[in-house]
C-alpha cells in the first residue's frame, strides 16, 4: 500500500503509523454530558465497509498527520491531505 503524502509524494505504508478514525472530534470538557461525550469520542467507533477517513502519521517522513481516505475493502487510497487543514477548517465552520 502506498500513501500519497502531500509533502513527500507517494510513499510506502511502512513509513506511516496508523491512528484511526479521522471523523471523530474532541468534545468540550465543560459541557453537561462531558463524560458521556468523551466516552463516545474515545471508545465508540464505526467499522465501515468502504471508504474510511483515517489519521496516519508520516513518522518516516515529514512528521505530518494526514487524513487519508481508504477503501477498507481493497486498500484503494483515494487521497491524503494534511490533518491540520481538515481540522482547522472544522474550527472555522
Amino acid at each position: 500500500m502506498r500513501i500519497p503524502c502531500p509533502h513527500c509524494g507517494p510513499r510506502t505504508h511502512e513509513e506511516f503509523t496508523y491512528y484511526g478514525d479521522a471523523t471523530v472530534r474532541r468534545p468540550s470538557a465543560t459541557g453537561p454530558d462531558a463524560e458521556a461525550a468523551f466516552y463516545d469520542y474515545v471508545y465508540t467507533r464505526d467499522n465501515p465497509c468502504g471508504l474510511h477517513r483515517e489519521l496516519w502519521f508520516h513518522q518516516g517522513g515529514c512528521h505530518e498527520w494526514l487524513v487519508v481516505e481508504r477503501d477498507t475493502r481493497n486498500h484503494d487510497i483515494k487521497g491524503a491531505v494534511p490533518a491540520r487543514s481538515v481540522f482547522s477548517a472544522d474550527d472555522a465552520t
Binding site: 474532541r26 502519521f57 512528521h63 505530518e64 498527520w65 491540520r84 481540522f87 482547522s88
Partner: peptide
C-alpha cells in the same frame, strides 16, 4: 507523535 497529533488535529491554532 502524540504531541504532533494534538497540535495538528486538536489545536492547530
Amino acid at each position: 507523535q502524540h504531541m504532533h497529533l494534538c497540535h495538528q488535529t486538536l489545536w492547530p491554532e
